[in-house]
Amino acid sequence: MKVAVLVKQVPRTDKIKIDKESGTLIRKGVESILNPYCEYGLDLAVSLKKKYGIIEEITAFTMGPPGAELVLRRSIALGADKGVLLSDKAFSGADCWATAYTLSCGLKTMGNPKLIICGKQAIDGDTAQVPGEISEISGMPVLPYVLDILELTEEKIVVVSEFENGTVTLETSLPAVVTVGSGSNIRRIPSVNDVLKAYESEIVVLDKTKAGCNDTDIGLKGSPTRVVKIEPAFSKGDCEMFDDGNFNEGFEKIKVFLMENNDEEN
């Protein structure tokens, strides 16, 4: 069977600085990485391929400008067999729905894979909406927040999904979309050979025509939502500081907080 992994190139949000005056992102010096949740998804696909003999091919998909092919090469270095880049000026400005639609078109070109693996969310937008929307647009069920896959055959999949207050073991027929919410926090380092292979691999590039997209459903035009304003998130910035020398004074203040809290409760 064919497996697709959806990947996204994201800025390292833990290194982002915002211009407090203008509310804009200071891009200088912020590196782009493979979204960690997508990497978990890729790791899962690679381990499934090793474990079950039935996976012929893992294809990494992304949508983005030409430079986003780097994230596909990274995916190939980490074990994907090939990469497909959906890239067209007409895709720009896409919100979650238009992104999900465009990716769904791309998936169709490979004869609809039986299993579509996504990270549960990307660390830049953090919306977590694309996998659910793809599942609807492609008419497949979605199994979210997968921790482990217990069984995989040509017909069905059994997974353990983690929600905030417990886990459920779910079974569904294929095709299906799964999302992955956790994985090893030790980043795999591909071998030199794998990196070389990745850089020699051909990346399939699909524009809107090759992907078979409707003009009215892509990019800004196809997006039902609009960002109308961006502002920096507030910070308090008036923290009273204590250290090894005067912590008891700080403790007195905490005691007051705790007592106030008790009064409210009683």
């Binding site: 949000t13 509310g23 992102l25 660390i123 939502t225 304003k229 502002e231």
Partner: peptide, 13 residues
Amino acid sequence: PALGGNILAHIIS
């Protein structure tokens, strides 16, 4: 919030 909570985005449909 977006971009790891660094910004607040105002969005309409």
